[in-house]
Amino acid sequence: MSLTRRTALAAALATPLAAPAFAQGALTRMRVSVIPVLDVAPLHAAIREGFFAAEGIEIDTSTTAGGATGLPGLVAGQFRVVFSNVVSIMLGVREGLDFRFVSGASRAKDSPPDILALLVRKGSGIRTGRDLEGKRLASNTRNNIVWLRGMAWVEKTGGDWRRVNTVEVPFPQMADALAGGQVDAAIFSEPFVAAALETHGDRLERIGWPMSETAPGGTNAQYVAMADDLARNGDLFDRFGRALHKGVDWVNERQGQPALLELISAFSRVPLARLQNTALPAYPKAVTSAELDEIVATMTRYGLGGRYPASASLIFRTARG
């Protein structure tokens, strides 16, 4: 009798843990900071396909125009998870902020086309990083992954990155700034590469792939959370990771299919026709020590060095392959 009662009690206690899916109406709300870019397709897939709901999580995405409010918002407790580029994350880590990687988001493919492209005006004669010395190169922000890969490309093609003048121009305005002559070259990310070539194709041309030419398959962006939140709510983040990674599978199974482009078009509002000419990133689940070591080495090379903690200590269990 007492045995059955104890069993029943144990079962009653274990049920909500074992089957969070049954805890309908008691979804845990998680606010995630995103940028309306291609990289967050798996997150939106997981939301739309109900993978988060199945894990008892309701995702509330908050779109910011850039990394400017995402990571500070994470520190301030406004977000549980933030999507950001790896350079901005590591600069925060260098400053002592306790960011931990909970999942990979995007990285470069091993060969072109990749998500970054370097465009110049046709007939400008600019072909290499050496030609860019003393010229004005647009990047959406200084000291982020776009800028870093751009500087690596300049050096790889024979130029001195210190002699290139970086100008900050937001992606939506880059094509006009370049075509109008305010800058001599610009590092675009997709889908702005496709947009620029579609609308200014008669005047602009692509001369380089800053990612796949300098770091094939190199790291780009991840999801991070705060270390103390992970320590206290590890189970919640396990569920978050599982759901997100089902979204990654969903996306990867539909590479090259209309369903994926329709999903991206729905959350980003980028017209479907343009997405058909857009290069997509690779969508990894894991974050590896090797990719973090690579980025720290590259950052150090381009003036963003400093004391970084051992990269393995920054990876939460959900992001270990």
Partner: peptide, 24 residues
Amino acid sequence: EMIAGEQGIGSYLVLMQFAGRAPE
């Protein structure tokens, strides 16, 4: 509204700017 969040005219402006939809 342009700073963060998904509500309002401001966030719509940001979204359309990123989607490259100038007419909207």
